[in-house]
């Protein structure tokens, strides 16, 4: 219950900030995808199941605020959360740059995937060059924000974890 509440707060905060503060601070016409960032960080910390679930919930919440078919962001972030969670199991580097690189790469892949799905559904009328430019800029923006937001999300994730106490 505590975990659900914590994740809801993270997703809601990400959506509000993304549509207010960060929409005014655009980087070359692109704004950060904070729900992507939160999904990748949660997948990194909690594994593929939690990553997929957080992605689905966050993506669906974002979809219901958009004027396009619901479910596209949820599909993207479910796969992204699962993928990053699985990938994390095979990476053993202690480098502090890992979250930054992973968030950047995952955002790039996610935005491109979402753009292609929207294009196939006739919901996006932009050129391939524009899609690539937005994906790259969003990935860069998310990567830059990661060192500031990663500790906050990690703290929320840790505080909501169920701690088992063994007594004997």
């Amino acid at each position: 219950m505590r975990r659900i509440l914590s994740w809801t707060v993270v997703v809601l905060t990400a959506l509000v900030l993304q549509s207010t503060v960060f929409s005014q601070i655009e980087l070359g016409g692109a704004k950060p995808e904070l729900v992507y960032l939160a999904t990748v960080v949660l997948a990194l910390l909690e594994g593929p199941s939690s990553g997929a679930l957080a992605g689905f919930v966050g993506g669906m919440a974002q979809d219901f605020l958009l004027n396009e078919p619901k479910g596209i962001t949820a599909l993207t972030l479910t796969l992204l959360g699962y993928g990053v969670g699985m990938l994390r199991q095979y990476i053993v580097t202690p480098s502090p740059l890992l979250p930054v690189v992973l968030v950047g790469a995952a955002t790039l892949a996610g935005v491109l995937f979402q753009g292609i799905v929207m294009f196939l559904l006739n919901q996006l009328d932009v050129s391939g060059f524009y899609l690539l430019r937005v994906a790259l800029l969003t990935a860069l923006y998310n990567a830059v924000l990661t060192p500031f937001l990663f500790p906050v999300i990690r703290r929320v994730a840790e505080s909501s974890r169920v701690t088992k106490v063994f007594r004997w």
Partner: peptide, 16 residues
């Protein structure tokens, strides 16, 4: 985990 992901993907596709 795979079952969960497949279910979520199916749910997303149904919603779309």
């Amino acid at each position: 985990t795979r079952l969960l992901v497949v279910s979520l993907v199916m749910l997303s596709l149904m919603t779309i």
